[in-house]
């Protein structure tokens, strides 16, 4: 990984990931059509997160690039999650 030659992702990999992403889109449409109450939002967000993870790992090459980028992305996600948690604590317990 550290050598000068950069990792070349085969086009076939992208085709598989794309099929996966489209399948997840239709699953999320199907899931939200069923009345699950509170779980509808959670389900849709979990599927969206899964899709983002695929895009970040493969399309954005995080899986193959320098580890530091992965650490940065993880930190940004944590910062965002913390802000969401603090905001909702404020609104739910005021």
């Amino acid at each position: 990984m550290e050598n000068e030659k950069h990792h070349i992702v085969p086009i076939k990999t992208y085709v598989y990931i794309l099929i996966g992403l489209i399948a997840l889109t239709f699953i999320s449409i199907g899931v939200t059509h069923i009345e699950l109450g509170e779980f509808t939002t959670a389900g849709a967000l979990i599927l969206a997160s899964l899709k983002s993870w695929l895009v970040l790992s493969y399309f954005m090459h995080l899986k193959f690039d320098n580890v530091i980028l992965r650490i940065f992305v993880a930190l940004i996600v944590l910062v965002f999650a913390a802000v969401v948690a603090i905001t909702f604590m404020d609104y739910m317990y005021r």
Partner: peptide, 18 residues
């Protein structure tokens, strides 16, 4: 891809979750 990821969240939040 960033533009794609933003849409991945916009679509369920505005269109799917009612």
């Amino acid at each position: 891809h960033l533009v794609d990821i933003v849409w991945i969240f916009l679509f369920p939040l505005f269109y799917l979750i009612t």
